[in-house]
Design a protein around this nucleic acid. Structure first.
Length: 858
RNA sequence: GGGCGCAUAGCUCAGUUGGCUAGAGCAUCUCGUUUACACCGAGGAGGUCGGGGGUUCGAAUCCCUCUGCGCCCACCA
């Protein structure tokens, strides 16, 4: 059989994936143990980026691993409607064509959204497949499909009836650009340098960054302890202000920072969270100044009505300037301004009626206890019902939950799950169908995370229980550490509420993929890596390896092209070792005959069993990088460098095939493409590697450790030849003086691996007396003196080494003569130090001898 | 302001319960086409484990402290 020198990934990857799909390889196979992963649904807007790639790779490794272990496994894919992100994207696209969202109307606009989503959905699905993931596409779901929408609304109604959802006016983050509220979690803060204004306001100087909100400010707030203002607290004044004289009262509150500005401020309850809380506390009037488009309300101000925030700021300052009320303008004032991270505008706090989820009401029955959402969220993690990897994110999680406030559910956008609430003459009814004539449905939609939070069971087709009975709760939720609060916490909330059970047992969080300098990848900076490009250039397998090896859970991962190229080389190495193995073995000899094993056979078989054991353990405990590295090291440093080289002298087909088989299987979750193609040369009928290798204790041999001596001997010969510039000389006479059984038996192998044909066993080494110092057991290697080059150089080197070893030896000797050490240290450690000391002593003797011989030759 | 991390070879990172004479990959230097693989092989050089202090027979590992960097939350009239 002819096997190419390389894995031609361009030719085979699509073919392999299509064959898997056609043969339904990703569908569950009945078993008494189940494993399930629900894919975090990518936004229906997007294209595949590295954040997806790393998540998909880890999920697929888990799923393939468990499937091979014989679990009945499902991996459910889907896409998310990503309400705000999608709506603003479509609005932007239409805007570019000169079409206004509002003039198009709700229904027509949603039709456009649907068209857009359908198109980008199929793109993202195609790209997801490029990662080689073994997701069951027959179970594909979408968060906005009809069944799920119904569920979302039903659960809203249930929560409302349970008194967990209420409607109330509160200060919300209003985005005047997109004309919607934005949740606290969707805010980003930008540090801006703005003017900070000092105005004369009656008896005091107040400071503000927002003059345009100050039309109706009637309350001055100072700190109760502030000596400067103590006497005026509680008093009322006539104040000359923007549009004439107004009455203002001074109150005190401890929230005031005496150091900031003048230590006195006026409050605008409707447009600041702090002011709103103050107003409620002190029972003050809450008056709207700015409308929902970000303009000053005409009834509030004659002069500025209709002006934008920016224009009004300028105008108000001008008016106050004319009146001589401007004391000072500090133009270096730095503060944080909230913006909508979904590409919207600057947030304007507004007081509005919104739907809220009560997180503190203790009425939820969970596993026999009556608790609040907050308590359930705390309990399930505290009591280890759900385990988070890496563990430290549990602290983050608690920190967030402890400070959790009621969740604002409504969004003033069109795309999303419509809120099932109806209004008529101030009455409210919460139900799916219209209650009748004259009732208007709430135009708002639900926060994207409201439906995303139900994904663990809606993706399984709930309320249909065919799948949920078997696969809920999920085995592991794998996602990015950036959405632990957005999403993970909400899934726990809905899971426990609706299903009365946690949504998943484990949470595994990966970190963000960043560039070589640790910077976030971004399109505008041009430092991003496009996974599609990398797949086209290097193939899927190398990309997967580079995302998993060298990364630790939750920690950011630096990715750069050279790294991917490295793993491309590794895939080629795997390819060629299998190619070699198949070319020079007899495929009919598959039974290992224990009586025909030489030392290297026993060694590689034992090492292979250890490998199977530790890779399995590491995968069970989410240590993907360790598992991958172990296979990498075994294959390169043990199998290829030693065993396969040795098998060129003497081949045991059954052993080679056993080890290759295990390696391919262990690698398959990491590199499904190349391993599948390679396995097809061994077993044409197996479409996907189906079984996980078992550790066979009968293939672990006590003598395997003797191999170490063989390796040391070969290395020592290579090194001593290199030292004297003889590495290409096959005929240089070498004598080996040894009693070691396996070395004597393996003389031909040693010759081959050390590229030396003239090696003899000898007990009489008088004439060839330059020893190698590199052996830690009783064997000597001698070179003939007249063959030596570089003697002066080696003398210096040897002296340097000698120095180092002497220090080490002193170290060991001191340790062992230290009574405190021998009294306290455990026996095996003392023993270890003793052998280390003996080794060092022997090495020292060898070095002294070598140095003397070398000096004689000078 | 509150919380969570990180700092180990030129670069990227391992180092699980304290036992380390501190490892790997890439890069670098020397040498090499031999039954697979030059997308390869052999050998070498390269480190005060961020600084200081403490606990211990023993610290990269535990504690304190300082320095630098990153992330999350809160918030800035």
């Amino acid at each position: 059989m002819e096997i190419a020198k390389n894995f031609d990934f361009e030719k085979y990857e699509t073919e392999i994936y299509e064959r898997w799909e056609k043969n339904k390889c990703f569908e569950p196979i009945k078993s008494d143990k189940q494993y399930s992963i629900i894919m975090p649904p990518p936004n229906a807007t997007g294209i595949l980026h590295l954040g997806h790639s790393i998540g998909l790779t880890i999920q697929d490794i888990l799923v393939r691993f468990k499937r091979m272990q014989g679990y009945e496994t499902i991996y459910v894919p889907g896409t998310d409607h990503a309400a705000i992100a999608t709506e603003s994207k479509v609005a932007q696209i239409l805007g570019e064509q000169g079409i206004e969202r509002n003039s198009l109307g709700r229904e027509k606009f949603l039709e456009e959204v649907d068209k857009y989503v359908k198109n980008s959905q199929s793109n993202i699905i195609e790209q997801t497949k490029l990662m080689g993931v073994s997701a069951d596409w027959s179970k594909l779901r979408y968060t906005m499909e009809e069944d799920i929408s119904e569920q979302v609304q039903d659960i809203f109604i249930k929560m409302y009836n349970d008194g967990l959802i209420y409607r109330s006016g509160r200060i919300v983050n209003w985005d005047p650009n997109l004309e919607t509220t934005v949740s606290d979690d969707e805010l980003e803060y930008e540090t801006k340098t703005d003017n900070f204004y000092y105005f004369q306001f009656g008896p005091v100087v107040i400071s503000t960054a927002r003059p345009e909100t100050k039309f109706a400010d009637k309350t001055i707030v100072v700190h109760p302890e502030d000596e400067r203002y103590k006497e005026i607290i509680g008093k009322e004044f006539d104040v000359e202000w923007i549009e004439g004289t107004i009455k203002a009262k001074v109150i005190s509150d401890e929230c005031i920072d005496m150091e900031l500005g003048t230590g006195a401020m006026t409050i605008t309850p409707a447009h600041s969270l702090v002011d709103f809380e103050l107003a409620q506390k002190h029972d003050l009037e809450i008056k709207q100044i700015i409308d929902l488009e970000g303009k000053i309300i005409p009834s509030v101000s004659k002069t500025c009505g209709g002006l934008s925030v920016k224009q009004a700021r300028k105008k108000v300052t001008e008016i106050l300037e004319e009146k001589g009320l401007v004391v000072k303008i500090d133009n270096k004032y730095k503060h944080n301004v909230a913006v909508n991270y979904r590409g919207g505008g600057t947030i304007e706090p507004q007081v509005m009626k919104q739907w809220w989820l009560d997180v503190n009401k203790k009425t939820i029955n969970y596993k026999g206890k009556t608790l609040s959402f907050k308590e359930i969220l705390q309990n399930v993690v505290r009591e280890n019902e759900i385990k988070i990897t890496p563990n430290r994110f549990e602290k983050n999680y608690f920190n967030w939950i402890d400070n959790l406030q009621d969740w604002c559910l409504s969004r003033q956008i069109w795309f999303g799950h419509r809120i099932p609430a109806w209004f008529k003459d101030g009455q409210i009814k919460v139900q799916i169908q219209s209650p009748g004539k004259g009732w208007q449905q709430d135009p708002d939609t639900l926060d994207t995370w409201y439906s995303a939070g139900m994904w663990p069971f809606t993706a399984l087709g709930y309320p249909n229980t065919d799948l949920t009975d078997k696969f809920y709760p999920g085995s592991c939720l794998e996602t990015g550490n950036d959405i632990i609060f957005f999403w993970v916490a909400r899934m726990i909330l809905f899971g426990t509420y609706v299903m009365n059970d946690i949504p998943f047992k484990d949470v595994y969080l990966h970190g963000m993929v960043v560039d070589k300098n640790g910077k976030k990848m971004s399109k505008t900076k041009g430092n991003g890596i496009d996974p599609r490009e990398m797949i086209a250039k290097y193939g899927t397998d190398p990309l997967r390896l580079s995302l998993v090896i060298g990364s630790s859970p939750g920690e950011k991962l630096r990715l750069y092209e050279e790294k991917i190229a490295t793993y491309k080389n590794f895939v080629t190495k795997v390819w060629n070792s299998v190619r070699f193995a198949l070319m020079y073995t007899n495929s009919n000899e598959t039974t290992i005959d224990n009586t025909k094993l030489n030392i290297q056979d026993k060694w590689i078989l034992s090492e292979c069993q250890n490998l199977i054991n530790s890779v399995t353990e590491n995968l069970e405990s989410y240590r993907f990088s360790d598992a991958g590295n172990q296979i990498y090291n075994f294959l390169r440093n043990k199998l290829c460098d030693w065993y396969l080289e040795m098998s060129k002298v003497e081949t045991n087909s059954a052993v080679v095939l056993h080890v290759i088989d295990a390696c391919l299987k262990l690698l398959h979750p990491f590199t499904p493409m190349a391993t599948t193609k390679l396995y097809s040369y061994i077993n044409e009928n197996e479409l996907m590697l189906e079984s996980w290798p078992e550790v066979k204790t009968e293939l672990i041999f006590e003598e395997a450790k003797e191999m170490e001596k063989l390796i040391q001997t070969v290395t020592a010969i290579r090194r001593i030849k290199k030292e004297f510039d003889l590495q290409t000389d096959k005929q240089v006479p070498i004598k080996l003086q040894t009693q070691q059984k396996y070395i004597i038996e393996s003389l031909e192998v040693i010759k081959k691996l050390s590229n030396s044909e003239n090696i003899e066993l000898s007990n009489n080494s008088e004439k060839l007396k330059l020893p190698s110092e590199h052996l830690s057991f009783a064997t000597d290697i001698y070179l003939k003196l007249e063959n030596l080059n570089n003697i002066q150089e080696q003398v210096e080197k040897t002296e340097k080494q000698l120095n180092k070893i002497e220090k080490q030896l002193t170290n060991f000797t001191n340790k062992l003569s230290n009574k405190k050490f021998t009294d306290n240290a455990p026996g095996d450690i003392i023993e270890k130090v003793e052998t280390e000391k003996d080794k060092a002593q022997e090495l020292l003797n060898n070095l002294i001898h070598k140095l003397n011989v070398l000096k004689e030759c000078l």
